[in-house]
Design a binder for these strands. Structure first.
Lengths: 288, 288
DNA sequence: CGTTTTAGTGTGCGCCGTAAACAGTATGTG
DNA sequence: CACATACTGTTTACGGCGCACACTAAAACG
């Protein structure tokens, strides 16, 4: 994280045409690379490195993505990576944009609400397919071309919503935020279940999930743990309201929830957004 | 030691003391420690370790919390910590509960909506005060006494909402999820601003924020970066809808947003929840 | 051609989390 | 009382991490 090229005050020589030189990460993100003039042709490339890193993350999780492992995967020395990527942080940033390469298909005739729902679900699905996405420390991540494409798609869905650009941005931001939250809850619940199954089976913590009984994972209920813990350590005097609420509870409803907790969150947020849009006069009253 | 008791339903034999031994982390979380009978009195304690770790995180961020640094802070060898905490993971789990020690005050007369809003805001404020909270890898974290206290408070606020316990749990979960998302956005925006100021000033990346110009940080506008990047690399042909929306945009509204983006998210979610509660007949029509 | 720029390698440093063997101390029990 | 036992904190060491730095080899320019 040293690597700050300039010694002294960061002053760019005002030499060439483009003033203001964007940060190197941003340039790399947008494929803005100066053409090479001398030296051996590069055999490696940032794209290949990123692809290898993603395959590693898919297979073994983000923790397995170390510079050494990635280098091994592409068949080079660890230090070779640094010719194409400024460091691990940049590699992760490139991954976080590359993961958003595929745009979802959204039905052409969808109105704003159906469109945004499809958009949100697609993004949640993507996160569940590549859970390591949620482990990326995405702080201070500049926007890359793929993420912006998703944004553009959302703006397209809201084509007929009469709202200033910055408010549309806030709407998209809120949905994106919900996506991450929802996905995180699911992924973490799943991980907890896997963890528990491993523990119960007495297997080491690095046993890959593929060697575990899927049925057992599915059956591992985090709420049951919660109840056990409360039962052991707490009582109505310590947590009166929780106990009161659960005392008058007849058990889970007959219609199993299944994936519907995702639907719950989305519908609440969209209902809230609809109220907001109506209040702002951004949609016609009969819309949706 | 852990028979694989998958056979048979989860039935609690009404037998003697504790069967079923909860995981050590959970026991430690709830202060369930067997009394010591022999050996020297411990000079260290898990509580002291956790406190030191939190002070370190407050001062220098979660990345500064290493076993060595924490040990140094409490004045012991790194390995001494392992007598009180099973490893770093457990330390982080203890921190994540300890951080929720202080309950917010919620006005007594508040109805469900005002109450939940206060609850949510308090939690967002807490996260902004201790941003490292969001860096905790909270996967598979069992609930601790402090977090459950927050939950109980939320259940208390919803005292008069007529909803089954599991649905109330879903409501609390949705709000908690929103809290994390909202806080994360703010913290990351802030970090990006700090990062940018440091870069522009040519300072090394590990310069503490306290040595930076607060005004410059406040002025660093992430949206401006966004516009610059789009202006440089993209055009109406690549992202038609975004450009269309921003083309017919008159600039930010006069009434500055200030902290109101927090209000936006909360109001949307609460509006959505209100619609949900009404649909379920959980609140009286004139309520709120 | 020599010069210069670049791609990938080899070595090594300082940090990390933690396993294992150990010394010292308080509490059992005879 | 002495001794066994259980417990705390230390020492030492290991493998892994990200990455700085000095190097060799290769391609393109003058």
């Amino acid at each position: 994280m040293r690597t700050d090229d300039t010694s002294g005050p960061a002053e760019q020589p005002p030499s060439t045409g483009q003033e203001h030189e964007l940060p190197a990460v941003v340039q790399r993100l947008w494929g803005d690379t100066a053409p090479r003039r001398r030296g051996p042709k590069p055999a490696l490339s940032a794209a290949r490195i990123v692809r290898a890193a993603m395959e590693l993350a898919d297979a073994e999780g983000l923790a397995a993505v170390s510079m050494a492992r990635v280098a091994e995967a592409v068949g080079y020395t660890p230090m070779a990576l640094y010719r194409h990527v400024s460091g691990k942080e940049e590699l992760l940033i490139l991954m976080s944009d590359a993961v958003a390469a595929d745009l979802p298909e959204i039905p052409a005739g969808a109105d704003w609400r159906a469109g945004l729902e499809a958009w949100t679900r697609a993004q949640i699905d993507m996160a569940l397919t590549r859970p390591w996405m949620l482990d990326l420390p995405l702080s201070a991540t500049p926007p890359g071309p793929n993420r912006v494409r998703w944004m553009d798609q959302a703006f397209g869905v809201m084509r007929e919503v009469d709202l200033p650009a910055d408010e549309k941005l806030a709407v998209v931001g809120l949905l994106a935020q919900h996506v991450l939250g929802e996905a995180r809850v699911h992924v973490e619940t799943h991980r907890a279940a896997v963890h528990k199954v491993r523990r119960d089976a007495g297997l080491p913590d690095d046993t890959p999930e593929s060697e575990l009984d899927p049925a057992a994972i599915h059956a591992a209920d985090p709420y049951a743990d919660f109840e056990v813990v409360l039962g052991r350590y707490a009582g109505p005097d310590t947590y009166p309201h929780i106990f009161a609420s659960f005392a008058s509870w007849s058990g889970p409803a007959v219609d199993g929830p299944g994936d519907d907790d995702i639907a719950f969150g989305i519908s609440v947020v969209l209902d809230g957004l609809e109220a907001y849009l109506r209040r702002r006069g951004a949609i016609t009253p009969q819309s949706s």
